[in-house]
């Protein structure tokens, strides 16, 4: 271990701070971000918090309504249910893809990586549109199923929760794959050989050694996928066809249609607090940097 003296001397980010009472000049580079983030982001965010307890009149009635009325409770439960289902499916499929990516080599592996990355670059609206077309009653999927004689009536695949889940899983799989893949790549394969050499079966090795070792990645992926899911707006709005209202859309309805700012703000605060708690837990356990891959 180098002593503190050596660390500063070697200058690993050696602070030139407070040279004779003056501020480090590099703060000038940070100033624009601080001004924008605080002035144009955090203050407006704080205003929303304020709005939730002052509009239409001071008090906690907006939150009271959220806690007691049945409509917001239904929205909340729908959001949590869809997020939970989506997260489980995305994580399981994502784990498989990550595992394959981590254990394949050469072209096969690179193709897989590209295939996972490409959807990230395709507009969320374009994807929602495509799924709407694919899954609707007269869409290719139903056409094909009827043509194959598997069903007589078109299946209701879209404009319901199923459609929303399909669209969201599609969006979130890449976000599940990347953190898990990162952890798998970082694993020391010798551990697994060690386990095998000690007589453990492949299945035992997987469940007793590999899976626990990759759990940090799984956990990070779960938080990211769940948090993303909580804030989903476009996909439920398009693929839910107005029948599946999640938290984000409910906020939007409160503001854009019924113009109840205080009520919308209160729902935002709930969404924000939930998100920050989950991210905070991840930051504590896995570390923010690793989590965001």
């Amino acid at each position: 271990m180098p002593s503190p003296a050596d660390q500063t001397a070697s200058g690993s980010g050696a602070p030139l701070a407070h040279r004779l009472g003056r501020l480090d000049p590099y703060w000038w580079l940070v100033a624009p971000l601080l001004i924008v983030t605080i002035g144009l982001f955090l203050v407006p965010l704080f205003n929303i918090l304020l709005l939730s307890v002052t509009d239409p009149e001071p008090g906690l009635q907006n939150y009271e309504r959220l806690a007691t009325a049945s409509a917001p409770m239904r929205v909340f439960m729908t959001t949590l249910r869809i997020c939970a289902v989506t997260t489980v499916i995305a994580i399981v499929l994502g784990y498989c893809v990550a595992y394959a990516m981590a254990h394949l080599e050469g072209l096969h592996q690179r193709l897989l990586l590209v295939a996972v990355l490409i959807p990230l670059w395709v507009s969320v609206l374009v994807r929602a549109f495509s799924w709407l077309v694919l899954l609707r009653d007269q869409g290719p999927v139903n056409d094909w199923l009827i043509g194959a004689g598997l069903i007589d009536e078109p299946l209701k695949l879209v404009r319901n929760e199923l459609g929303v889940v399909i669209g969201m899983v599609h969006y979130l799989i890449p976000y599940a794959v990347l953190p898990i893949y990162a952890v798998m790549r970082g694993l020391d394969n010798r551990l697994l050989f060690a386990s095998r050499s000690l007589g453990a079966s492949p299945a035992t090795t997987f469940f007793r050694v590999y899976l626990p070792l990759t759990l940090p990645g799984v956990f990070a992926a779960m938080v990211i996928v769940f948090v993303f899911g909580l804030g989903f707006y476009v996909t439920p709005a398009v693929l839910g066809g107005g029948r599946v209202v999640m938290l984000a859309e409910s906020v939007s309805v409160a503001i854009l249609q019924t113009v109840r700012w205080g009520y919308g703000a209160a729902q935002s605060v709930v969404l924000l607090v939930l998100t920050l708690i989950l991210i905070g837990i991840m930051g504590r356990t896995v570390g923010l940097k690793r989590g965001f891959g």
């Binding site: 982001f41 407006p44 965010l45 205003n47 929303i48 948090v227 909580l230 804030g231 707006y233 938290l247 984000a248 906020v251 939007s252 503001i255 919308g264 703000a265 935002s268 969404l271 924000l272 998100t275």
Partner: peptide, 8 residues
């Protein structure tokens, strides 16, 4: 979440 940013 984007919707919260949007509101703010």
């Amino acid at each position: 979440p984007p919707i919260v940013t949007a509101l703010a």
